[in-house]
Write a protein that binds this DNA or RNA. Structure first.
Length: 591
RNA sequence: GGCCCGGUGGUGCAGUUGGUUAGCACGUCAGCCUGUCACGCUGAAGGUCAGGGGUUCGAGCCCCCUUCGGGUCGCCA
């Protein structure tokens, strides 16, 4: 029978002096200061408390156990002779009369030191995640995650949204990412799929008459990981609203997110409603990305015409030339070269540069090719001495991307161009509905084929009739971006089967294709669907931003590694032949 | 799948043009220490330098292959 705790390890203060208490926790550290005199640091979820060892009996118990064992300590609270102002419990200590060993740590050396686990090798951290999570810094991110999710849920309920769970085992969808498949025991050769998002279910809910739906929804996509993208699974704050426009969705998000970001974020400043808005094409022009970071004041400018006729090969006719002028730049030649190399790695093409000397002349990098256009360039870019100009040249999309990467790096590197400690939201709007596919060379859907086109069916018919260029058709689709990180896509959905068919007709598909690919949704929409719109901000990404972490794994309780392996549980793993047999699965691996 | 970076006692790192016994910090163990709080001091143990092959009189270091990890591009309606 274990003595119950009377207090937690973060709780005792001077007011508790002389009380008889029982604490329980992990033995974090032992500082032996004399013979039969030592201090034990006892840690639980709530904090740490100092236990003072003054007798041979207690000393023998402590010496018999390894650090990180769990113990229960019963004793008297005493005012410390030497207090520690840095600790909440630093004014008191507990003098034990009984120490009970609850759970031994049988190893005297751990895979890493608990309070420095963030410095340890990540594979070790993941393998021993239960030890890693003992580190308060690591644990606090998980607590933050809980608080953020609770706050999101509360805010959504207050906005009259209904939380509805949708199936985890569902049908494979031909669109989007690679599915995770689950073999169906009762249906040989057939498979369930885990949902990439509850997209179709929430649209069906709208058709059923649920006016406002939300869910902290698990989503599964079998795609490769990134620093800000966990492999396999992640969570979205998925929401959908009936009889709603883009503006209705925006106002809910602008109402819900900023207070939560301001309250729980590392930075406690968040942009308020209305968020900045920028058209997709303008974002590419000015920021070189569809994920603009508005905290950086630099903007990309087009100087293609200014340098026309230059001898410099990358400026040749047909190429696009972009410039990003960064004033007050004192980077040395060595740093500039490093910057350009980093840009090339991230952007995939090489940037160029020059700078403006004190006397106004151009120097360094491609200065030789810019000097002939000196006055025009100075005027167009508003150049002053001490300005570094990054240049990107090539195909339009590559030049934009390169300039965009350079913009972010310069903003982070050169003082005075980035107001870092804030959350700056923006909406990217007016996405193109169609694009020319790089492989096919033909017209394809740019993003989600189920977004409502800007002009509805009429615009589509004109495009089919050849009266307007289909590439100019926009979708009522939007991205939510915060500090250069994409939090979400959303759209006003296409709820009209007729418009849906017109939209498909433009990419040489027809009614049969719509019915075949999304039968449930198409059928449902034929029974009277409300216009509806929604969005699904990534919960993990939001928590990552709020925690100020660069890796998404820091805010997931049990993350998988880059290769989608759960090192701790050993997933994925092999299964027995009997299991495979039941599922009608034969494993046949080549090589 | 492409490219980049990395793998050195339990942990984190250093290791010079390739040259004697692979060094530092933390941790562990032992001794000393009665007010520590990242306790301190003294000492000790602990290494297949990821694996394999090659160059060389000689490889932790140079080359090739393999493997594992991280980043990035592709990919992510």
């Amino acid at each position: 029978m274990i003595q119950s705790r009377t207090h937690t390890c973060g709780e005792l203060r001077l007011g508790n002096v002389n009380e008889r208490v029982t604490l329980a926790g992990w033995m974090e550290n032992v500082r032996v200061v004399g013979s039969n005199f030592a201090f034990v640091v006892l840690r639980d979820f709530y904090g740490t408390t100092q236990i003072v060892i003054e007798t041979e009996e207690m000393m023998n118990i402590i010496k018999g156990i390894n650090k990180e064992s769990t113990i229960s300590v019963t004793g008297t609270v005493r005012e410390r002779a030497s207090k520690n102002a840095k600790q909440p419990t630093g004014e008191i200590e507990v003098v034990p009369e009984k120490i009970e060993i609850l759970g031994r740590c049988i190893y005297n050396e751990l895979p890493f030191e608990i309070n420095r686990s963030r410095e340890a090798d990540e594979t070790q951290r993941l393998k021993y995640r239960y030890l890693d999570l003992r580190n308060p810094e690591v644990k606090n991110n998980i607590i933050l995650r809980c608080n953020v999710i609770a706050a999101l849920r509360k805010a959504m309920l207050e906005h009259n949204f209904l939380e509805i769970t949708t199936p985890i085992l569902t049908a494979s969808s031909p669109e989007g990412a690679r599915d995770y498949l689950v073999p169906a025991r009762k249906h040989p050769g057939k498979f369930y799929a885990l949902p990439q998002a509850p997209q179709q279910f929430k649209q069906l809910l709208m058709t059923s008459g649920f006016d406002r739906y939300f869910q902290i929804a698990p989503c599964f996509r079998d795609e490769d990981a990134r620093g800000d993208r966990s492999p396999g699974e992640f969570y979205q704050l998925d929401m959908e609203m009936a009889f709603a426009s883009q503006e209705d969705v925006f106002s809910v998000i602008e109402d819900v997110l900023p207070p939560i970001f301001a309250k729980y974020g590392t930075y406690n400043v968040a942009s308020s409603a209305p968020f900045k808005r920028i058209a997709y094409n303008d974002a590419l022009e000015q920021f070189g990305t569809d994920k603009p970071d508005y905290r950086i004041d630099l903007r990309i400018q087009d100087i293609t015409k200014l340098v026309a006729g230059s001898e410099f090969a990358p400026f040749a006719e047909g190429n696009t030339v972009k410039a990003i002028a960064c004033s007050g730049c004192e980077l040395t030649r060595k740093h500039i070269d490093k910057l350009c190399a980093d840009v090339e790695v991230q952007a995939g093409s090489k940037p160029y540069w020059f700078k403006v000397e004190a006397d106004g002349s151009f120097a360094g990098g491609v200065a030789k090719f810019m000097t002939p256009h000196h006055d025009a360039v100075v005027e167009a870019l508003g150049l002053t001495p001490g300005t570094l100009i990054g240049i990107a040249a090539g195909k339009k999309s590559a030049a934009q991307k390169t300039a965009g990467v350079m913009r972010k790096m310069l903003g982070a590197l050169v003082p005075g161009h980035m107001d870092k400690e804030r959350y700056e939201f923006c909406w990217v709007v007016d996405f193109p509905m169609y694009e020319i596919g790089e492989e096919s060379g033909e017209l394809e859907f740019c993003h989600n084929p189920f977004s409502m086109p800007g002009g509805g069916a009429e615009t589509l018919r004109k495009a089919i009739a050849g009266e307007i260029d289909p590439l100019t058709i926009t979708a009522q689709q939007y991205d939510l971006v915060c500090n250069g990180i994409e939090l979400s896509s959303g759209a006003v959905r296409n709820h009209d089967p007729e418009i849906m068919i017109e939209a498909f007709r433009l990419v040489r598909l027809g009614e049969e294709d719509v019915k075949k690919k999304f039968p449930a949704m198409y059928n449902a929409f034929c029974y009277g669907a409300p216009p509806h719109a929604g969005i699904a901000p990534g919960v993990d990404r939001m928590v990552m931003l709020l925690a100020g972490e660069d890796s998404i794994r820091e805010i997931i309780p049990f993350p998988m590694n880059k290769n989608a392996q759960d090192i701790l549980m050993g997933a994925p793993g092999t299964v027995t032949d009997r299991q495979l047999e039941e599922l009608h699965i034969k494993v046949d691996i080549d090589e």
